[in-house]
């Protein structure tokens, strides 16, 4: 069992967390100017990084969303921080 650190609650079992998606995937606006291809990209396309990745997670127990940076091969965690919404 791995432990992730919720920025609000501290270290907890991995089963308390849920993966929410890649960080920095901003919803394109305004909707009426967005092509189906761009919309599909926003909804479905992934970087699916092998190695260091920046991801949104939710701690199901407290309900907070946060950003986690980790290695998707070794599962090493570099940092977790509160999620303030971000632009890339």
């Amino acid at each position: 069992m791995q432990r992730f650190s919720c920025p609000f609650c501290g270290p907890r079992d991995e089963t308390e967390f849920f993966y929410g998606g890649e960080a920095g995937n901003e919803r394109p606006e305004p909707a009426e100017n967005i092509s189906p291809v761009r919309w599909a990209q926003y909804l479905h396309m992934e970087k699916n990084e092998k190695g260091r990745a920046r991801e949104i997670w939710v701690h199901l127990t407290c309900g907070e969303f946060f950003v986690m940076e980790r290695d998707t091969v070794t599962h090493e965690i570099f940092k977790t921080e509160a999620f303030h919404g971000e632009r890339t």
Binding site: M1, D13, E14, N48, V73, T74, H75
Partner: peptide, 13 residues
């Protein structure tokens, strides 16, 4: 498994 991964091994949960 519940966690996106390229580590070719399974997790205990």
């Amino acid at each position: 498994d519940r966690i996106p991964s390229y580590g070719q091994r399974g997790n205990p949960p």
